[in-house]
Design a protein around this nucleic acid. Sequence first.
DNA 1: CTGAAAGCGCTTACAG
DNA 2: CTGAAAGCGCTTACAG
Lengths: 343, 343
Amino acid sequence: MTVQQQARLTLAAIAREAGVSAPTVSKVINGRHDVSVETRAKVLAVLARTGYKSPLQQRRTLADKPAVEVAVDSLDSAYNIAVLNGVMECAVESDIEVLLNLTGIQGASPVNPEQRAQRIVDEGRCGMIVVTSAFGDAPLDAFHRRGIPVVVIDPLNPPSEEVVSIGSTDWAGGKDATTHLLGLGHRRIAYLGGPDNVECNQARLHGYLAALRSHGVSVEDNYIISGPFQTDHGARGLDALLQLDPPPTAIFAGNDTVALGVLAEARRRNIRIPEDLSVVGFDGTSKAEESVPSLTSVAQPLQEIGRAALRTVLRQLRGEVPDSRRVELATHLVVRESTAAPR
Amino acid sequence: MTVQQQARLTLAAIAREAGVSAPTVSKVINGRHDVSVETRAKVLAVLARTGYKSPLQQRRTLADKPAVEVAVDSLDSAYNIAVLNGVMECAVESDIEVLLNLTGIQGASPVNPEQRAQRIVDEGRCGMIVVTSAFGDAPLDAFHRRGIPVVVIDPLNPPSEEVVSIGSTDWAGGKDATTHLLGLGHRRIAYLGGPDNVECNQARLHGYLAALRSHGVSVEDNYIISGPFQTDHGARGLDALLQLDPPPTAIFAGNDTVALGVLAEARRRNIRIPEDLSVVGFDGTSKAEESVPSLTSVAQPLQEIGRAALRTVLRQLRGEVPDSRRVELATHLVVRESTAAPR
DNA sequence: CTGAAAGCGCTTACAG
DNA sequence: CTGAAAGCGCTTACAG
């Protein structure tokens, strides 16, 4: 007895199943008018039930993995790389293609968001992950209107209602970092933060303030310095803080990049870390691990954030409504060499 | 006289044009093996000239920007990131989409190269850049047979004749690094290299040997150690070299990663760099610049290599025959803190 | 390795 | 409206 091979689902098979001829099925599929209402209904029912796909469609679904676009401003950032890695991991598991869009490249034609969104629809892409602030609210709206899921990771500004954003527990992380320093015995702790108007920075600052207050440590206004999330800002910030009387014995930096700027400047000045000064960073990028001395840092689960972003896009595609417009994953403090008790 | 309607571009038309049968054209398009090299070339030429598209492709290209796939084994590599950056820059200028394929991800389904190549054709993608050794020769051949331009960057093994590869002047770079150390007065110089069988490593080693010979310095066999391009290998290599009598006063490492392993191990042993030991790396990644002490390294123009890779793909698409199957861009030595005269 | 012939799946033209 | 027949474009199986 021959094992009946699973017959391929052809138009002819549909015709047989529906009790009509192949040409009739063809007409239904192609939206022709010369088919009676009853016949059409019968055929459509069989098509739906069997999930028939034309050869073209068959090849397409074999060939056309769904694709998601990831917009990142630059690859010169351990933060971005870690997030991208997480997205890629999830993409591999879910069999999704990833299109990389480097928004920060010099000479990149200014993105017309309407066109871009339209193109993404036309090409059958299924979503967009933004790991940068390069897209403001208006562009994101262009996607939203077309029903393309968009997830923003750690947006610099609070995104519009429509967009799902993923980030970390910045407030708790700021509190943890500061509590760690307080626990070591520090009382003169500076916050060398990021840009004033950036959400995550504000949350970290307020976590810092909360920790100080709950330990009854008074907050010195001139111990709080804001600026760009850049190495230079760390170096200049250390310079400014050292001029104070008394100077801080510990610095909580708004992110690892700033903290590494502090370490570099301290080295130039022969300030020993952690003996003379404790430093804590934020992000927990690979740079924190690799620096000398290695950097105590509030680690964000960056890889997991990337994975969660793609998972959220896929969930939205399935029509699920996200529980929340904002997801925050837990940070955790990683203590390394750059912090110790004050002398 | 009837105006001859512009005949639709069918496979049969291509066959007529190329002077072969339709089945033969079909075979070429589908990457079958049973076509002679000459016939394949003839057909591919006609396909390229006429811009034939399969029915599937005809549907697709309406909305699609051309897209290139970039295969990288991992993002945890400053080398890969720099190359990817270069590719992205060129992609932005040329208005090309980039699909990122992380070949090294755990659980990635083992790539079936035939399927993958077919998919790329079906989706109207225009080429492939491989920044990793994840694809051996056989897979690359699957692309070649379909006339998809493939460019391999710094292949671990010499790629087949058909594939264009881009790399650096590894031999000259190895010679430069060694000459630099010789110029500082070192005579006991070790080569702590990469895997024996890897082309670029062999070239660097031979550049090292050439420099030593031309300075009349005899080569000590036990000063030459090979191993993986990893930090650990640098640490273990330093350990082994220090047991020698006499130990080297300088180490030329096969790449920056290995060199950083040497620096880390030296730090653990309180060996001062460069006072007690000079170290030179290879690649000139950002890690070389950021390490403490900063690392003298033979810089590859990684960004430019990435750009050149995409430019080469685009040129092949235009039907231009590359001048050479192998392009080497010039390295240059960047002297930093990790090298000095021996004591 | 090549291509005539057969085949596949869908579509079109048209007789009923 | 319907479907037998012819046709289209591509692919497969196989003889040479």
